[in-house]
């Protein structure tokens, strides 16, 4: 199976004159195969979200390499970055904040389609198709983010991320803010899409139980470093590191 993402010796330093620089991500390396679901777990402050933001270029990498489909995008800008976004898209924790409040959900989804060269008619048709794939009826295209529930908005955010058929989806706590029943629905949707399009997921999450059911492989992060990696069952049933053990023991 081919590799979609390879991260090598990734580092991120946040400068802080008063308290000394913060090494948020420290020498992180991992790979993600096409169609694989990889989870990064850890407590808040462990650096998992920073990794997601470095990979998606929302933050500037201090050092290290990020290969997306063989191409180094660690410092990509402009056209090169735009090309990269055709291959990877991101879904955030707070769906309502990730949409422009002045645009309807339909316009929000169509924006990326139009940006990538579709005609208006075709974009509209595609948008309707995406909404129905994500379990929303046509009329949601005309609603504003504040007019729908958190779960519906997250479905629309997933629809938007899928618009340009990326091969990698980066989900940063994408279900953490949702009620458990809604969370279960969204996960089912993600499973369904993954099978249909053979997409790779980088799934950032603090819920270990959820990861066990959803992902193929898991990375445990602690204080900016990867402390353990393996299949979810390996890591959960026989953790090697003390920190992983503590994390698992805390789950109710």
């Amino acid at each position: 199976m081919s590799e979609i993402l390879r991260v090598e010796h990734l580092k991120k330093i946040f400068p802080d004159r008063d308290r000394g620089d913060l090494l948020a991500v420290n020498d992180v390396s991992f790979t993600l195969k096409a169609g694989e679901k990889l989870a990064i777990i850890g407590e808040s402050g462990s650096g998992k979200t920073t990794v997601a933001r470095l990979v998606t270029r929302l933050l500037e990498t201090s050092s290290g390499r990020i290969y997306l489909d063989g191409e180094d995008i660690a410092h990509a800008k402009g056209t090169k970055l735009k090309e990269a976004y055709k291959k990877m898209q991101m879904v955030f924790q707070s769906p309502i904040e990730s949409f422009d409040p002045r645009l309807t959900l339909g316009d929000g989804i169509m924006e990326s389609l139009l940006n990538h060269g579709l005609e208006k008619e075709a974009a509209l048709a595609e948008c309707q198709k995406l909404l129905s794939l994500c379990g929303l009826s046509r009329e949601f295209a005309h609603r504003y983010p504040h007019e729908v529930s958190g779960g519906q908005c997250q479905r629309a955010a997933i629809a938007r991320a899928l618009a340009i058929e990326p091969r990698l989806l980066i989900l940063d706590e994408a279900t953490s803010a949702l009620d458990v029943t809604v969370q279960a629905d969204i996960l089912e949707l993600l499973q369904h899409i993954q099978k249909e399009r053979n997409m790779a997921y980088l799934f950032i999450c603090h819920d270990i139980a959820l990861v066990q059911d959803f992902c193929d492989r898991v990375i445990v992060m602690h204080k900016g470093r990867i402390v353990e990696t393996g299949t979810p069952d390996e890591v959960i049933q026989s953790p090697k590191e003390a920190y992983t053990k503590k994390l698992i023991d805390s789950v109710l």
């Binding site: 458990v180 819920d207 066990q212």
Partner: peptide, 12 residues
């Protein structure tokens, strides 16, 4: 029942 089944459970 729905609430309980939607809750992810850890298999140790």
């Amino acid at each position: 029942k729905r609430l309980l089944s939607a809750m992810p459970k850890l298999r140790r």
